[in-house]
Design a protein around this nucleic acid. Structure first.
Lengths: 231, 231
DNA sequence: CTATTATATTTGTAGGACAAATGAAAAGAT
DNA sequence: ATCTTTTCATTTGTCCTACAAATATAATAG
């Protein structure tokens, strides 16, 4: 934005390990490596790239963490199916995440919550609805809902989307979401809506309503959070 | 599901590097390390944990990749602000992602696209709208929209959410989304809706409509994709 | 008290060593 | 010729040593 903020870049001087990591990923892509394909052994890679085996191992260690390659001790390495969320999972620590990132995650969850309606209606089963009904019936008797109650209800919704990644993704996001909201509520004056939408209301709409009605209701249900977003 | 599929787990025998990585992350969390805090040096960590410096370096190399720690050569290591999406970015390779993960990402983008309405209306500025108008006016003259045109329009929408992570996130997802849809269209019979919603229509609603109208229109706009989702 | 010089520290990189388990090859038995 | 046993080469995981280079600190000189 500010012309001055086009500051002199740190001129990222990549370490050998960084470069080998990049080279390996490019090598895999360009040669269309698929899960199960055998990789050259560590020594061969090191010699071809003219670096020490240490450097190669550090780079491979990173790719192993991401689930991208798998090492079978004494039998060589193969490509593997990476774990989409492994990288994000290790980093979701409110203590070290920037405020900006925390805010982004908070908002991301609100976005997701509004976006799942179509999938819920496309994939709901009677068994899902029965289970969800049991949850909301139980919660109807409670004077106030705990964090666990919230997770139980919304978590069940994510289950019903039938999207495993999404389900896991949101469960990773939730703690950060809670953390952000907890800090927000200390300062922001958040007022409950006049006509709140309860979990039970959402269930009823999901049972015999439309995606549009559901989104509308969900927005009201989340209005406490939506009220906290600003430019 | 199947009782037999409760197969004997691989009994994940963690390597020393895996264990040190976990220990370090726990250590950071439990001691509330914040960005900028100094870390013990490699040798000290190795001695305390009774492992070789190699193992410690491999673990640290992973955390460096995530942006979690930063090593200033010859001055020691400090905590850093991790890059939320660094881990996912390196893994989004359609060649190695599982079909299941690809499908999940495809759906995730549909979810996001529907969920951003509230943020667009809460944060749109006149300048945003002007820029968006320029895009849709240009596209109105085209007989058919290219992939780049799609990216330009939808990318501008993501910009307007004011959520940097979200914006980057979707740009990472887009290539996978395109790849999945390209493979889908070879088999699935996808018919364009009778009354399609164009980018121009979406712009008009964003300009003087409501979030609800926008979501409704966006759903029609994406109906080609939504028609491809099945249980 | 300031300026220069020496020293210690710490990461990045290289290279060597070896255990252990696996698969393949060789040797032996029938 | 076929099957069994033994030997051997391979390869990752782990440990160790070494050193360059740049920084921060301490020591020395002016």
């Amino acid at each position: 934005m500010n012309p001055k903020s086009g500051l002199l870049e740190p001129l990222e001087s990549l370490s050998m390990t960084d470069r080998v990591e990049n080279i390996l990923r490019e090598y895999f892509t360009e040669n269309a490596f698929k899960p199960g394909d055998a990789l050259p052994n560590e020594l061969e890679i090191a010699q071809k790239l003219n670096v020490s085996r240490n450097v190669v191992r550090e780079a491979l260690s990173r790719l192993r963490m991401l689930g991208m390659v798998e090492a079978r001790p004494r039998r060589g390495m193969i490509m593997a199916q990476p774990d989409l969320l492994a990288g994000i999972e290790k980093v979701l620590n409110p203590f070290i995440l920037s405020k900006s990132n925390q805010k982004d995650i908070f908002e991301l969850r609100l976005i997701l919550e509004m976006g799942i309606a179509e999938f819920l209606f496309a994939r709901k089963t009677q068994q899902d609805l029965d289970e969800l009904e049991a949850i909301v019936e139980k919660q109807k008797t409670l004077p106030v809902l705990s964090k666990e109650d919230e997770i139980e209800f919304h978590g069940k919704l994510y289950d019903m989307t039938g999207n495993e990644t999404f389900q896991r993704f949101q469960s990773l996001l939730f703690p950060v979401f809670e953390h952000v909201f907890a800090t927000l509520t200390t300062t922001a004056d958040h007022v409950a809506p006049a006509n709140p939408v309860t979990h039970y209301d959402l269930f009823k709409i999901l049972n015999d309503g439309t995606p549009e009605e559901f989104r509308k209701a969900m927005h009201i249900h989340l209005s406490v959070y939506y009220n906290s977003i600003r430019r």
